[in-house]
Design a protein around this nucleic acid. Structure first.
Length: 575
RNA sequence: CGGGGAGUGGCUCAGCCUGGUAGAGCACUUGGUUCGGGACCAAGGGGUCGCAGGUUCAAAUCCUGUCUCCCCGACCA
């Protein structure tokens, strides 16, 4: 293996982290000389980062190839037409980078490649005999994130391994999906990540089922609900929970209007003189999904989860209604809304409310509420009103699968796999002939991994106050040798050890700079290479050098002649 | 998009309120002394103070506009 000499290498370490870095991985990647920022959510990957990313990609490739994946490399620049075929030219909205060519034609930078791979499949696949196919690439993706943040965790240009499976039927898809799921587990495990696979929301991808691979860290932006007792784990965008039963009174024969001047919040109705507990109130919200209005009802103390409402409505794009859109529909302004007797648009009601009686809600008349509302009798009055999971689960609520209690924690999404079904093959007319000679749409799956996120997640999980502690598998180098002084005998001994390690097949970073020992130790800790060999006068006098693993506190003296053998053993053993 | 903050040498920041010579630490260059956990001394190099207007005898500093970056929220495979 070639050796990299730090005196010649470009590894610009910093004593101080940039002021705008918040999370550990961002600070350390910058300080340790891995990345520099070019713009909001756009980063330069310097040589150390490139080495680690290449290693991650190699692991991904091996595991993709092991399940029969075939690597492609498709364009990042796409004509608009192909995105218009699937309908996602509109769906992606401002999140898509768009541009025009010199002739005025519309183009975009790829956010993902379902359309492009599906086009290849449509144009070339003819028979079920050619299936299944598993195709993948490692490609740059572009997403105009509204708010890039946290270093490499949320960016506008990043590398994704995206894979697509093409099967003739659902059973084939189930197997392809399972293959990917297992490959993902191997990939993340090999990269040194603790992760959980969770049930997820499919969002703009569409499809029937999806799982996210999550790393538990406060640097993440997703919330996962998990049961410590059984295996249940789900993104809060889809998680459900058991709520304790509420005791309702008999209520009234029909809802009764009462005056509540100026009361437009759950809190003020809960306060004297009204004293209606938030749990006894119905919160009525108006949303706009794909230009259509929807009403959603959750309990007063609960929070609507927009991803769940999106699932319920089937809308591609969902947003809260603007204040001025509400009165023409409801007859009252936000704060006095209710769904009693309301059937102008679809009404979605959280299932936990189905059997509740004696509830209080807005009267759809400014300044009035209704009491004695029986949800089934007064709200679920026809086909316009449907039960749908809407509320955001909270820590401490019951597990939906067992009698355990849910834990809710922040997590970072590093991979997401989807059963797409025929969404793209139908819209883009990708069919094959089945065994009966009938044209059937190809059944697809889509599988993504964020390469930089693996790197950043590894740091979030493995670092200390001195720097990064790379898992061996993705460290930029496996070993670093420090020459602790200018003496010729030290240089000579270090050179020999470096050569021995390198000849033994290790990737070695040799700190041969004319720096003081302290500087070298600090930088070595910062950069985080797993094995550190320090060649100093004291040890060398006895024919020994210092052996230290980045994760350990102890330093061991090892005879010069044994270093290479031990290092090889260590690397073979992993970590 | 709403709210907040910040743009001054490569990095971290002071100076701005109260206009008048552009500063510190780190980094860099040279020389010397050091040499096992981010050394010390000395001498240097390096800044259109984000950009554009305006006010003024005079603008890093005051005013207007604009761009960029960061944070919170909204939003988001």
């Amino acid at each position: 293996m070639p050796v990299v000499r730090l005196s010649q290498a470009f590894v610009p370490t910093l004593k101080e982290a940039p002021a705008d870095a918040q999370v550990a991985s961002h600070k350390l990647l910058v300080r340790a000389g891995f990345i520099r920022q070019l713009g909001a959510g756009i980063y330069d990957y310097l040589p150390l980062a490139k080495r680690t990313l290449t290693k991650i990609e190699a692991i991904v490739r091996e595991e993709m190839d092991a399940i029969g994946g075939q690597e492609f490399f498709l364009p990042a620049l796409h004509p608009a037409e192909i995105w218009k075929e699937s309908g996602r030219w509109e769906v992606m909205g401002d999140n898509m980078f768009r541009l025009k060519d010199r002739k005025g034609g519309d183009y975009c930078l790829g956010m993902t490649h379902e359309e492009i791979f599906t086009a290849v499949a449509r144009d070339e696949l003819r028979s079920y005999r050619q299936l299944p196919q598993v195709w993948y690439q490692i490609q740059t993706k572009f997403r105009d994130e509204p708010r890039p943040k946290s270093g490499l965790l949320r960016v506008r240009q990043f590398t994704m391994k995206d894979a697509y499976s093409f099967d003739v039927d659902r059973a084939g898809l189930d197997k392809s999906y399972e293959d990917q799921r297992r490959a993902y587990e191997r990939i993340f495990t090999r990269c040194g990540l603790d992760f959980v696979a969770v049930q997820a929301h499919s969002g703009a991808m569409g499809g029937s089922e999806s799982s996210e691979f999550m790393v538990r860290t406060d640097a993440g932006e997703d919330l996962v609900a998990a049961c410590p007792k059984c295996r249940y784990a789900a993104n809060t965008e889809t998680a459900s929970s058991r709520l304790p039963a509420e005791q309702d009174g008999a209520g009234l024969a029909k809802p009764e209007k009462f005056a509540t001047p100026g009361v437009v919040t759950i809190e003020s109705l809960a306060a004297p003189p009204y004293g209606v507990a938030a749990k006894r109130q119905l919160k009525t919200l108006v949303y706009v999904g794909d230009e259509k209005l929807y009403v959603a009802v959750v309990r007063g103390d609960q929070e609507l989860n927009e991803a769940k409402l999106q699932t319920a409505t089937g809308a591609q794009v969902l947003r809260p209604a603007h204040a001025e859109e509400i009165p023409p529909l409801m007859g009252a302004r936000a704060g006095s809304l209710g769904a009693v007797g309301f059937s102008k648009v679809h009404v979605f009601v959280d299932p936990s409310l189905a059997d509740r009686k004696d509830m209080v809600t807005g009267a759809n008349e400014d300044g009035f509420h209704l009491r004695g509302v029986d949800v089934r009798r007064d709200v679920l009055t026809g086909p316009h009103a449907k039960l749908a999971e809407l509320r955001t689960v909270r820590a401490g609520e019951g597990c939906p699968r067992c009698d355990g209690t849910l834990d809710v924690f922040k997590a970072l999404e590093i991979g997401h796999i989807f059963k797409l079904g025929t969404k793209y093959s139908e819209s883009m007319k990708a069919t094959v002939l089945d065994a009966d000679g009938k044209a059937v749409p190809i059944v697809m799956g889509s599988y993504g991994i964020g390469v930089e996120r693996i790197m950043a997640a590894a740091i979030e999980l493995h670092h200390d106050e001195n720097g990064i502690r790379w898992p061996l598998s993705i460290a930029p180098f496996q070993a670093t040798v420090l020459t602790l002084g200018p003496e010729p005998e030290l240089k000579q001994a270090a050179d020999e050890i470096v050569k021995a390690l390198s000849d033994a097949g290790l990737e070695v970073l040799h700190d041969d700079r004319e720096e003081r020992a302290g500087v070298k130790f600090k930088d070595a800790d910062l950069v985080g290479i797993p094995l550190r060999i320090a060649v100093g006068k004291k040890g060398l006098a006895e024919g020994k050098v210092e052996w230290k693993l980045r994760g350990d506190k102890t330093v061991e003296l090892v005879p010069v002649g044994e270093v290479a053998r031990r290092a090889v053993e260590r690397v073979r053993a992993g970590s």
